[in-house]
Amino acid sequence: MYKAWLVFRKDIQQEFKTRYALNAIFLFAIVTLTAVSFSIGAFSAGPEILSALLWIILFFSSMSGLAHIFVREEETHTADTLKLVTTSSSVFLGKLLFNIILLFSVELLVVPLFIGVMNFVVYDGLVFVLSLVFGSFGLAGGGTIVAAIISKSNTKGALFTVLAFPILLPVIVSGISAAKKAATNAPFVSATSELQALFAFAVVIITAGILLFDFIWNE
């Protein structure tokens, strides 16, 4: 675990010097938010459409930033170096932690902006926040393992979204549904199945990632 922490700290150090992933994901989120807000205005859409838009913005922003963490190691020829000094599980956990933090920081910026600009009224803050937290774990878990896969393939850019989208769809579907319920003042219990699904998905995909990552890293 300490080694995973070291890998994470190394990635943070690198990120602060280049800000590549951070810039990509933040700018993507802001650009899509602007496009959405600009094209449909502040008051015309109901909670159903707004929850879907929010998750679409979050999903595609994460697609623009999550792959970077592994692609960078391959492109700078440091993957072998890293392989020489540490275990595969510490690499995976370190990178996963990085992606989770990355997603959280984007959400911290984009979600309040979205709520403000789009007039998205959240009645049940707890359901909303929990769905975002669990959803981020799921997105980051799936995104990290798919990033590891595509970093070893020949075409990296477009393939990431193609591979990640169908796998991460349960997160998007449940996330949209939970956000909708949080915005329409439905009782808390009605959203439990979505929260359960998001939580279970995060647990399953992260476990599968840890177990399968070794086969990619030491291929």
Partner: peptide
Amino acid sequence: ALSAVYDLLAFVTVPFFVFVVPRI
């Protein structure tokens, strides 16, 4: 190796489509 990993990854998420989507 890569496609086997993706295949297994897909396989563990399929139950979510079978159970989650119809429940919602």
